[in-house]
Nucleic acid binder design. Sequence first.
DNA 1: GAGGAATGTGTAACCGGTTACCTATTTTGA
DNA 2: TCAAAATAGGTAACCGGTTACACATTCCTC
Lengths: 286, 286
Amino acid sequence: MLNYVPNDVARSLSKKSTKTIALFVPDITNPFFNELALAVEKVTQLYGYTTILCNTNESAKIERQYIQNLKQKYIDGFIMATNTLTEEEIDQLDIPMVAVDRSSSPVIPTVTSKNRDGAQLAVQALLRQGCSKIAHIRGPKGLWIAEERCQGYLDLVENMPWFTPKLIVNGNFQLKEAAEAAKKLFKEHPDIDGVFAGNDLMAIGTLRALQEHGIRVPDQVQIIGYDGISLAEMVYPELSTVSQSIYEMGMIAARILIKKIEQIHLDEENHQLEVKLIQRGTTRHG
Amino acid sequence: MLNYVPNDVARSLSKKSTKTIALFVPDITNPFFNELALAVEKVTQLYGYTTILCNTNESAKIERQYIQNLKQKYIDGFIMATNTLTEEEIDQLDIPMVAVDRSSSPVIPTVTSKNRDGAQLAVQALLRQGCSKIAHIRGPKGLWIAEERCQGYLDLVENMPWFTPKLIVNGNFQLKEAAEAAKKLFKEHPDIDGVFAGNDLMAIGTLRALQEHGIRVPDQVQIIGYDGISLAEMVYPELSTVSQSIYEMGMIAARILIKKIEQIHLDEENHQLEVKLIQRGTTRHG
DNA sequence: GAGGAATGTGTAACCGGTTACCTATTTTGA
DNA sequence: TCAAAATAGGTAACCGGTTACACATTCCTC
């Protein structure tokens, strides 16, 4: 008889390992993280690991709870798309860990994209395509990727005659908040004709706000987002965006984590992925 | 010293239970299932259980793999928002199980909404608000909830002089497919002035297709979706929809499952939740 | 104060694998 | 052919809890 199935729990107990890793995401309803999860899962499965998805809902408390809970269960490692943990905590956790998209500490390997370059790409395109007053809907204060993208925007517009810091408003990476922010922004500056949003969700929120006010996109205002989530192709007009290879980010992060778990040497712990500008319906390109 | 932390794996081994349940969803990128997951997680956490989210990607193979894998890990129960398993399989699995939204077998407790009633609600509203030719973008053939919603539509329009079965087209519950289907539909029947879609995603796809063709919503065509996902409020115009309490569905399913696991008696295994029509920007209501 | 119940403590077996170690067998080479 | 080495098979301890059962102690009642 060959119908013997080993008992995973018993094995885990003696090996102190479960062949399971956890992916922490701050917001499961953001398609960006879903695509990331798909990629991570694919790679881990290939190596015989199971992935479990943890939605922290942007809450540090939930995140810590999950971590304690999972450590007790002999989880083998973490991929963090969140950044609430302090450096100390990570140090004393003493479990293989990789950061993706957002990074909370320089001590752990990080996979991210060239945010500043990407932002410049977007703003360049807006300028080239005739915009004469460009606003930026930015992500949360203190979040590294939001700062970088904002910086990329500033790099190109800071010295423009029309520039004022009031053209930068916060949308917290969320659709609804960005829509609100955009409404206020356009009320105060009706002559804005270009918007670079810190992520696609906020760009879509901006689009929605403009449509509500009867402002034509891209005729009157051009919009570019950031991320390249599939939702960007599902709105009308389709969203122009700075696309990062989300799938690749997930795959690389997963591979790095597994190597760390299995103690295989890594030549390069950090990865910065290239981004590319995809122009669609919200911009007036060639 | 009170810093003793019991070892979960050892406990699981001897108790043959992990205080963990799994939620299976067919498509993690569909916001409906995210909202469901949030609800399930909330309840299970309350009862001391951990939930793990499994994305089956509509694939029966992946689903079976997960199930095998998890059974070996002493999972305590399953909540299935999928319907690929056969009745036999469920029987011989011999693990507490609850179906939510979709049901694959009458032998397991099911939490769903009054689909047929909901569809009627939508079509009634369209008729009342002046539509004289209403189409239906339906969900996958063979899927119970899709059939029910289609039936609800038929209940009201089957005997109308303008009705023809060609007004029913398949969109597979997906945004893109529905947009394509809608385009074709409107090319053949330009006089359609109302659409009831089998879910919100398809309604949004329809909206997108119409916008692309310069057809004004709700002036020329009114649209109603089904589900009440939050994305419905994020498009412009905001989508009118038949809202089911997704959160409640998740909570009820979780509670039923936990009771089954802990062998507490249930008076009522099946639940059919009420739905309500929410009119927003895609309909011309009073 | 003795008999019985009620409560407390201690120990060993068990959950089902992994692994280190010891003995038995086969293989290899001089 | 025989000793040493390589391989095979078997056993016991261990991972870290749970639980059942034996035994000791306290309490209550007549």
